[in-house]
Design a protein around this nucleic acid. Structure first.
Lengths: 211, 211, 211, 211
DNA sequence: AATGAATGAGGTTTCATTCAT
DNA sequence: CATGAATGAAACCTCATTCAT
């Protein structure tokens, strides 16, 4: 069999096994059993159990990044639309690649400092983007006084929490888009200055969200 | 030595070790070494490594519950105060015993289904309380239209995210109370109906929060 | 069982197994089987298979060194006696513990650079002693012109060769002392200047060796 | 490619790899990598890793034997010359192909009984030749009383020891011929009867050796 | 109640060899 | 002839748990 294909199969098997049993409970034995190859074959493609996990992490990281669009901060009316698109993109990825991505991200924080750092980088990337966005809006005077960093972390935490419920616990089984829209409006109204409230509500309506 | 005391020492040692190395990397050897007892002694007090972890989890659960006050939903003006108090209580507990926080936030969800369920119960308890609160307010017509369950999860996720940053990464090192106040106002204004905005701002001011 | 005793048993088992099968063919399984302990017990006392081998090497090194007496170079008539004593001491040790000899002579040089260096040190120690002795005698003018270093290596090589035959192949089964005496006279007469031949023969006779 | 050539390439690669890493540390992977052929190709030419080693041993054995001349024991004055020539021939071969020497001197004795026996045969061939020579001389009454077998082994051991130092440790870096000459004179004078000393010295001088 | 030596199942990893292409 | 992916037995090592003292 073609090596690239075999490697993919092993990655896939590993992903499933890690998702089902978690990194520690999963053995290389489980992975090769699922991939239906001999034990040694695994080690032709990966140096260790650790490495296959890292490879999965890299793949997830890369795929996620590819799916995110830049959101221009210049045209205010596109920002909210852009945010929503990105949130939906992330959710769609997690939905497509069901529990696996989640488990990977959750385990990685615990596996070792390197993996944890990797995941933290992803989070930080999002946090920083939000932070800039908030600061930008703040300068335009359309926000209540609030700490952009703290708020950014709160938003990310909330999104993560919702994802966790939906992906892992299969709770909050609303239609795909609705959940993100709900979240978005929660935050938009949570941060905006009352004076500009009607403006925001307008933007929300423009993209199809009732206030 | 008095058995109760010995057990406490072991729990304490285990807590530190788990916090430092994580559940899997930590060995019973590490725990007994830190507790300065023989290996066998450990098994006089706990049936297994798993059990000592569960015991820690139980203890945390119990302590946390003890620290939370009921928030009466009858007197609207006390609700926000009560929420803030509870959030601060949780934060104070985690601050006091951040090793414990580490364990709960990071490990328990992953260890096995029992532990995960246990942590989930804690989360659910808070979610349900928030949900009732939101529903209550919604009936009073002071909230924008929003999904109480989703919103509750978002709030819990945000709080958890902030805790994670503060406890584990030692980021967001603002003064203790400020962070919770910030979070609170973020949500209060995120959920409230514009018409009642000024009322909410009043309540916030009453408890010493600028809007 | 007392740890010191258990460790000794394991060392002993390892020695026998290494002697019988060689380092590579021998498995930890063989060692623990011979010692009649569980596999894990081995690792309570030694970090690895390598380590137990090194421990054996160290022990041999130490024991051998303890058995060697200093040979004073001041009194010429005692030198030959001293040399003979030392050669016999070494031989006796190898005779007593021929498994050890086997291991050292045959395996250590190949295992890795560290072990090889260790064995080489032993050889070098002897070579250097001989070298000094030869230089000493050369200054007194009682030797033919020869290269002390080369000669020292030749002597050590010859002795090693004889040991190998006797210990491993069980050839050259002469009485214990005789072999060393033979070797000694071979070299004494190989290096001495013809003019001092009679003097050397006298010394040899003094210690009971016919020329 | 011509099969014979390919086989030679593999033998050569194996020789280098064995010399560098030792038999056990060397893998078939190393050999085929160096030979720049695929893994399976190796097994077209050799049944196993063991076999390629044995083949190298055979080749060495054969080459060495080809390089040795018979030394006639009838004409005494040619014997010493012949011995020296043979020793130099051996040394030259090892010098030319020191990887081979490394393998033989260091590994073959340990690999298994067959290989060990093979090397031992070579040694025994030399020992027996020397033994006959010594016995021959002894009958002519030109030797001190000594055990021919023991002496033969001593000589072989000394030569081997010197080779080892020169080939492996790169010590004793004298000019090629000198070392062997030195060794020869050491033994000649070590074994000869004092009465015939001058005769021996004459022979040595005849072939260009100072006494 | 306390000890700590002993256990052994279970894990990861290696590598000589095979075989379908 | 040549390839190189696949094999799987066997090696080493760990560590939660037990048990005789």
């Amino acid at each position: 069999m073609e090596p690239t294909q075999r490697r993919k199969e092993l990655l896939d098997a590993a992903k499933q096994v890690f998702a089902e049993k978690g990194y520690h409970a999963a053995g290389v034995a489980d992975i090769v059993e699922r991939a239906e190859v001999a034990r040694g074959t695994f080690y032709l493609y990966f140096k260790s159990k650790r490495e296959v996990f890292t490879a999965l992490l890299d793949y997830t990281f890369q795929t996620l990044m590819e799916r995110l669009h830049m959101v221009s901060m210049d045209q205010p009316e596109t920002i909210i639309r852009g945010l929503l698109d990105n949130m939906s993109a992330i959710e769609r990825y997690f939905e497509e690649d069901s529990e696996q991505a989640n488990i990977i991200i959750r385990e990685a924080m615990l596996l070792d400092d390197d993996s944890a750092k990797r995941v933290d980088e992803m989070r930080q990337a999002v946090v920083e983007f939000l932070e800039q966005l908030l600061t930008h809006w703040q300068k335009q005077g359309i926000l209540r006084p609030l700490d952009p960093v703290l708020t950014a972390h709160a938003v990310v935490g909330a999104v993560r929490g919702i994802f966790e419920q939906r992906m892992i616990h299969r709770r909050l089984e609303a239609g795909e888009g609705e959940v993100m829209e709900h979240l978005l409006s929660l935050f938009v109204f949570g941060i905006i200055d009352p004076e500009h409230f009607e403006l925001a509500a307008g933007h929300m309506r423009d993209i199809g969200l009732e206030d």
